[in-house]
Simulated assay, not measured.
Amino acid sequence: MQTKECVAVLTGAGSGIGRALASALAQSGCHLALADVNAVALAETAAQVRALGVRVSEHTLDVADRSAVAALPDAVIAAHGQVDLLINNAGVALGGTFDQVSVENFDWLMRINFDAVVTMCRAFLPLLRQRPEARIVNLSSLFGLITPAGQTAYCASKFAVRGFSNALRLELNDSNVGVTVVHPGGVATAIATSARPAEGSSEAGQARKLARAKRLLRMPPARAAEIILRGIERNKSRVIVGNDALILSWLERLMPVSYWRLLPGLASNND
């Protein structure tokens, strides 16, 4: 897929992988409809990519708000006239075991990480079908491939994105719309520091978990964006980002039940 002169809708564009993807797409000549719940961060990203000479529209959006998502296609068409690429990147994190996570927080995460992906696909698929070639790109995670303790809610959401994307790809197999699912490993974004803490977890325990997470988040977002964009351009069905994600994905395939024996540090849920 050639992204030059295409129009991409990108959620979670205000920071991290989303901001890096916006820059990478703009450098390839792709026009952008950028969405984020944080209007200030969104404006910063938009200013950066406008300097690269592409057309950019800003859409302050809570992806968990179904009525707001339903109104977004009309706003994008008014600004750009077409949609060729939908990238569902927005996501949040939540620490804690299943017993520690409240019903409200579990549902909050699922609404943003999974329900919003489905809602965005439903909203934009009719527009994507109108283009000669189009693609949906859904960001799952390394934790959509493996299942560490203390990540029950996050894994549930990212495995759901993976399963939904794979089934949707088969349903659209004979159409002009392709589907890519992305599994980033340890990318140096703010997802760990912005994660909601587990209910009842001690401050010391939270600090230790945060420090451990930061040690694992090494890849620069710009590098992750390059890998994702290359996967889009090559019409790849699945993109695994980072050697850590690649190695662990193969380990899970070889030892689907017992692989955690080799990863005691990552598997541990001790505070």
Rank of each mutant, 00 (worst) to 15 (best):
R169M: 10
D174A: 15
Q82Y: 03
R131F: 06
P148W: 03
A160S: 13
L127P: 07
G95S: 14
R169A: 13
I87W: 02
D99K: 10
R131V: 05
D99S: 11
T147S: 12
F106D: 12
T147C: 14
N89G: 03
R122K: 07
R111T: 04
F164V: 12
C121E: 02
L142T: 06
S175D: 15
S175Y: 12
I87Y: 01
C155Y: 14
R122E: 02
G81V: 01
E133P: 05
L127C: 08
L172I: 10
V83I: 03
A93I: 04
D99Y: 12
N138C: 04
N138E: 01
F124C: 01
R169N: 14
G96F: 09
R122A: 03
Q82C: 05
T152W: 12
A149K: 15
I136T: 01
L125Q: 03
N113P: 06
L128P: 08
M120P: 08
D84T: 04
L94P: 07
Q130D: 07
G150F: 09
Q100G: 06
I112R: 02
Q100S: 13
I146L: 05
G150Y: 09
M120F: 10
F143I: 07
G163D: 14
P126F: 00
N173I: 11
V83S: 00
F159E: 10
A123T: 05
L128G: 06
L127F: 06
D115F: 14
A156V: 09
N88P: 00
T97L: 11
A116F: 04
S141D: 07
I87M: 02
G96S: 09
D84S: 04
D174T: 15
A134K: 09
F164I: 11
M110R: 08
R135P: 01
H80I: 00
V177R: 14
L145P: 08
A156L: 14
T97N: 09
G81F: 06
N138K: 04
P132D: 07
L86Q: 02
F159I: 11
R111G: 02
S175R: 13
A156F: 11
D99P: 14
F143M: 12
A93M: 11
F159W: 15
S102F: 00
L170S: 15
L142W: 07
R129T: 04
D84H: 08
F98D: 12
V92S: 13
L128H: 05
N105I: 04
P148Q: 01
N176W: 08
L127T: 05
D84N: 13
V92N: 11
F106Y: 14
L168C: 10
H80M: 00
T97A: 12
T152V: 13
V101W: 01
L125C: 03
A156R: 11
V137G: 00
